[in-house]
Write a protein that binds this DNA or RNA. Sequence first.
DNA 1: CGAACTTTTGATATCACTCAAGGGACGTGG
DNA 2: CCACGTCCCTTGAGTGATATCAAAAGTTCG
Lengths: 259, 259
Amino acid sequence: MQDNDDTGAGDGTPRPAGWTNNPLILKLESLATLSDDDRAVLERISAKPQLVPAGTDLIREGDKPDGVYLILDGIACRYKLRASGARQIMAYLVPGDYCDLDVAMLKAMDHAIGTLSACQVVRIDLDTIQGLLRDHPGITHALRLATLVDEATLREWLVNVGCRSADERIAHLMCELLLRLRAVGRTAGDGYALPITQEDLADTTGLTSVHVNRMLRSLKQRGLIELSGRQLQILDLDGLEALAEFKPNYLHLGGKEAA
Amino acid sequence: MQDNDDTGAGDGTPRPAGWTNNPLILKLESLATLSDDDRAVLERISAKPQLVPAGTDLIREGDKPDGVYLILDGIACRYKLRASGARQIMAYLVPGDYCDLDVAMLKAMDHAIGTLSACQVVRIDLDTIQGLLRDHPGITHALRLATLVDEATLREWLVNVGCRSADERIAHLMCELLLRLRAVGRTAGDGYALPITQEDLADTTGLTSVHVNRMLRSLKQRGLIELSGRQLQILDLDGLEALAEFKPNYLHLGGKEAA
DNA sequence: CGAACTTTTGATATCACTCAAGGGACGTGG
DNA sequence: CCACGTCCCTTGAGTGATATCAAAAGTTCG
């Protein structure tokens, strides 16, 4: 979908040995160390993704979860709907993210998972997962770490909605996504594709889409960002981070914050 | 601290065999089945609690976690502070709750844990935890389930702050606590001790303490609750649940919602 | 019985919401 | 290629929910 600036491979440039564009591998390697075998297994799992259009539910509230969905491209989300129709988005699933390794322990989903943009998705069935966890301790460890980071991210989102102002919330989200997407090689400098609507952003931050629109304009006017055609460019990362009071410690990135 | 109406044991009444007041055991049994041996181990672990005064940090942000704290009485919380001093409370730890089984996998805490009221707390060191997880699959399974419920609760809190009005947020929290405390035998009918300040409530719900105060008055005036001396009595549970649009599915209580 | 903390209340300010309408951008079908 | 529908973005005006500021009254506890 866009260039991966972290591996520095432009068109025609030969890839270093062991290079991968697989976001799951990149993500897990930002948290832990994988063996060649681990990597091979993960490559095999994500071999045949399926293209899912925007606005599709992968799992609905009340469903019995019967597998894990791994996002390879695009953005999906966890969300809940209120009776009024109000939607709260509780997490973004970006490339390399997956849903609910062991939610199969529970009888029914208490929330839904759906795509915000068109996504490349792999469905991994329970047996495969359990085999993976049984035979690959390195992967298991990395997946557990990733789950802890997901939880920490959820906590940070609560802080975001609970005690930041509208512009700070949006700025914080943008800073977080930059690091998360950079870890999986989906950034270009300080920019990335943000293939979601302002209404999605509103339901994420607990604002209205009208107010999100005004805050985006304000962020642009202050020279912090550029945003058009669903492509975000952060013009002043320091400024944006300062505004959002962004502290990336909760992402627990293992020292791969280069670039 | 107060009577346990679920086991129906008044003063002087003989307890049924196998009766326990241990909140961890009660909590885990609301999610899964434990063996006699499991129960005995858990009783032993929580044998010598320590009394911690209100407003004490158990773990601070930045600390390397080196053990697990189990709450046996009182209310503690996870929280983060902003530079401005604003505090966001991200979870309540009520009796039977513990912090971060496997957060020891991470290098540093990204948030703090502190007491809101005086608490009875047990600190369990890493070795003990690991032994427990190794030798007691039943407990391990129950603890994993409990972790999933913690996560689901966190998501529901995000919904609460993200898209409910002030009175709804408070009502929802009260409904949730009723079920959580009932599961560990800390309720009396539709009432329970709520030993926290209105400011704590404000930092939990993303409101100011002044506004929390007004909303509490409103809930009282509508005949939904009574609250004084840090004792909450829900007068109209159906009404409160309707106001909050409370759906307890996220707590994944295994059919123990009796009373 | 005084000090610190908490709750309560009033007056005012403001941030974000609501309602409403116009203006792209994009795709589809004639 | 144009016409049209749909979805999304943008902007304005007015409203409302919640915050802020300030002070008094109650509570707890040494």
